[in-house]
Every structure is written in structure tokens, then in C-alpha cells.
Computed example of a mutant assay.
Amino acid sequence: MSAFTALSASPFSSLFSSLGSLLLWAGEKLAPLFGASGTAVAVVLLTLLVRLALHPLARSAARGDRARAALAPRVAELRRKHSRDPERMMRAVRELHAKAGVSQFAGIGPVLAQAPVLFAMFHLFSTGSGGAELLDRTLLGTRLGGRWADALGHGGPFGAQGLVYAGLFVLVAAVATWTYRTARAAAKAGAAGGDSAGDPALPGMAGFAKVAPLLSFGMLVTVALVPLAAGLYLVTSSTWTAAERALLRGLRTPGPKAPAAGRGRRHGSAT
């Protein structure tokens, strides 16, 4: 018995069936506006609702990023102070972040929280647990349960179905390019602020930080391999992420309080 078959026979099968019924119902309601593509639009709207529900987590992650950036000079100072004792340096950085209330994993929250929805979308349109009718719903004539290879078999890359995927690939490439350039600019800004080696409190983060901006281009391969409905979810979610980051870039966090010693010196000078 395959993993998907076992999952379909589990209590989760009712949840998948309910989600499939919801998408079919929403597709019928949207049909007067979008015709046969109503269910595809329902997938996009579901994605937007999930991301809207996760927006508070994204705001928290943005505040954490800005707080870490504000602590960068102090982290660089600890790095210089404990350059010969990496273990002590990591412990000191963790203590600094803990005192400032900064979580190292805040940015992972939105990704992990939407993973079940993405898996459900992949499962629905891969196994047909939501019904064959759901698999046969289309986006501009391209089956939501189909893949890029299927589209290539119906007219090639420039056929009607191939052009649907071409549009998705262009959008993914545009978002990935923006993400890459933004990450590179942030890395340069961090280097100028004295935090060019990544977070020393998390071993391996320096190397990962250099590779991470390129990972967004990997979605091109993912969209080509997964069912079209799951690809729609990924493309919509990644576009939301890019727009959300652009909007939250100006999010302000309270600056660090002035040290007591500094205030004492000011009072002393006044007297």
C-alpha cells in the first residue's frame, strides 16, 4: 500500500473530501464570472485566505529581522571579543538575542504553517481523493490535475496548455529575481553594518545565507512537476510573500534603550 493510499484510507480522507467539495462549490459560484476556470480561481482565493490568516506571523518575523539588524553591531563586537572561542561566542549571541526577545526561527513560522494546506492541495490533485470531477476542472483549458509534461503532449510549449505554464514560469522567475536581488541587497547592507558572517548563534547559517537567495528559482522546477492546482498555490503564495516583504520592509521596531551608564554620564556632565 502506497503512502498516499494509506493516507486516503485514514481519517484525513474526510478532510480532503471536504476541501475538494469546497473547491468545487466555490468554482460553481465563480463560474458566472470566470467560466470553466472558476475552480482555478477558487484555488487562488483559498491561497490568499491562508496567507492573510498567516499575516500576523509574517509581521512578527519582519519585526524579528529588524531587531536582529539593530543588534548587528553588538553581535559583531561579540564576534571580535570571542574570536578564539566560537562556542562562547555563540552562547553570548544567544543570550543577547534572548534578552532582546529575538527568535532565531520566527521567519520559519509562515512556511511551516501553510505546509499542511500545500500538502492537501498536492494530495487532492494527485490522487483524486476529491473526486475525478475536481481533477478535470481547468484553467484556460488546462487540467488542474495535470502537469507540465501533459501540457507539452497537447501542442508543445507554445500550445494553448503550454502557454498557461509559460505564464506561471514567467511569474515565478520574476518573483524569484526580485527575491534574489532583495536578499543580495540585504546581505550587502548587513556586511556594511559589520554583520557579514551570518548569525554565529546558528552554525552553518553563513553558508546557507549565501545559497538561500537562489532557492527561490527552484520553484520553477517544482511548478513543472506538481499538479497545476498545486503550482497555482505555490505561485500565488510566493507572489504574496514578495509583496508582503516589500510592504513590511518599512515596519518599525522600537530602538534599543540608552544604557544607564550613558544617562549617568549626561547627568554628571550637567552638574
Rank of each mutant, 00 (worst) to 15 (best):
V164D: 07
R88L: 15
S103D: 11
A229V: 03
R66G: 15
G27L: 01
L220A: 12
L45W: 02
S21W: 07
G101V: 11
T253W: 04
G218Y: 00
T271H: 15
T47S: 02
R147E: 09
A186S: 12
V117H: 04
A61M: 01
Q161L: 07
V102A: 07
F208N: 07
L152D: 11
S196V: 02
H97N: 15
P256D: 10
A191H: 08
T236H: 06
P254V: 12
G255E: 13
A98V: 03
G207D: 10
R265I: 14
K81V: 07
G268H: 13
V211N: 03
K210E: 13
M205P: 00
R184Q: 14
S196W: 02
A76P: 07
H97T: 04
V111Q: 11
Y233R: 04
H267L: 15
S83E: 14
S238H: 09
T182L: 08
G35T: 06
P254R: 09
G128K: 00
T236E: 09
V164T: 09
A212F: 09
P56T: 07
V117F: 10
R245L: 14
P32W: 00
M1N: 11
K188S: 11
G218K: 01
G109T: 08
F12M: 15
V41W: 06
A100F: 06
F105C: 13
K29Y: 10
S10G: 12
G109Q: 09
A212Y: 08
A212H: 04
L112F: 11
A160D: 15
G141I: 01
P32D: 00
